[in-house]
Design a protein around this nucleic acid. Structure first.
Lengths: 215, 215
DNA sequence: GACTTATTCTATAGGTCGATAGATAGAATT
DNA sequence: AATTCTATCTATCGACCTATAGAATAAGTC
């Protein structure tokens, strides 16, 4: 039931062009980890998806934990950098927050399994890499937090709101998408738009729609 | 590093009053599962927390999976019922949604580990109980969805919003709390208030605060 | 004080899983 | 044609983990 995306690729012992196997191995690993969780998945499961023997995997990674680290790395890469770039733009906090939400959701499309594994399984990384990856996570949180605080300072956002809690709310909302975006039939742009509207304007009807002017 | 909450309770072989051990065993189980995940946790880990032998646990549950089911059950119980009760109240959709958010967050206080295990580990339940528990989950989603749709119909909420996406957003936001509410030093009421404000009114400043009148 | 019940113990079977070692065979390179 | 590289195989070891069987022990009850 697992091998539906990657499927048993090589029928004979040698078929794929050389030097092109590593990406497939990590892709299959991400898929299996995403589906069963790190400890719930066996290296045999991964090998089954690829149609090779369990021991052959160790040509590509030195341990199961190392494989998890590879997957997690591809799950976070880019988030921090693009987030930083967006936060530094000379636009309103509203606009930047919308962009942050959108860019946070977009990797679900092409790297959904990697993101999912990062979010759910990073706790099982060996201590060292967990700390390293955790630093990036906290960095991203701080980006959101700062944009929100700037929005308050600029008079765009409600005064008195708890920027930390709002950050956790927004990230929780976005990250949850990794667990349902495959089942629900919604495009990433539609999700991003709905989430932005929710966060910026809320559900309640506005007495008079007014574009906020920065002061 | 695990036994910090429950800690090694009985120093001698016999100490607790009889017929009172089962709640402690399931509590310890929830704690260990919450910390390491179902497959990452061993029955030995649970026994260590309780200060008993690994095999002794099987006096309380017939299998590790059965233990997971016990924990998950206590993780969901009440959610659906209280949700239904709130949705049926004769109040505005705004008020009911706020109450739903609040009641969804409150179990974090006393049953945080159970909720966390339910959210993260229910996928590892045997097929039958997973389906049964999944039904309750979907029921709760429908409650949120319906209140939101009623809010739109009543003119309280923006027309054209995607009630399904908003539901997933709100639940994702609330459920994420299970992973950080211990580290962050925020009370449940404060979280509920901030989340309600965010969902109902959004972050942006309102031109004129007006209590919505139902029509 | 004998009996019952709740709880924990010892000992171990049986299975699974990660990982290592060394062999093998096409493909690419020279 | 010889050599090197990439990728996979076979075979297996040792560790760990769940679960069972049956004995032992203490507390409460009659």
């Amino acid at each position: 039931m697992i091998g539906m995306t990657v499927a048993t690729l090589p029928t004979s012992r040698r078929s794929a062009s050389p030097r092109r196997r590593a990406p497939q191995i990590i892709e299959a690993t991400a898929m299996v980890f995403a589906e069963r969780g790190f400890h719930g998945a066996t290296t045999q499961d991964i090998a089954d998806v690829l149609g090779i023997r369990q021991a052959s995997l160790y040509y590509y990674f030195s341990s199961k934990e190392a494989a998890l680290e590879l997957v997690c790395l591809r799950g976070v890469e880019g988030f921090f950098e693009t987030g930083n770039a967006i936060a530094a733009r000379p636009e309103s906090a509203q606009k930047r927050l919308s962009l942050l939400i959108s860019s946070h959701l977009s990797p679900m499309l092409d790297r959904g399994n990697f993101v999912k594994v990062f979010l759910n399984e990073r706790q099982h990384l060996p201590a060292e890499s967990r700390r390293r990856i955790g630093r990036w996570s906290r960095g991203l949180e701080r980006i959101f937090e700062q944009v929100i605080e700037e929005g308050v300072a600029a008079g765009e956002f409600r005064a008195g709101l708890d920027a930390r809690l709002v950050t956790l709310a927004v990230l929780g909302m976005c990250n949850a998408a990794s667990s349902w975006y495959l089942k629900e039939n919604k495009g990433v742009p539609a999700i991003a738009a709905e989430f932005s509207n929710l966060v910026i304007d809320g559900l309640a009807i506005r007495p008079a729609k007014r574009r906020p002017s920065r002061r």
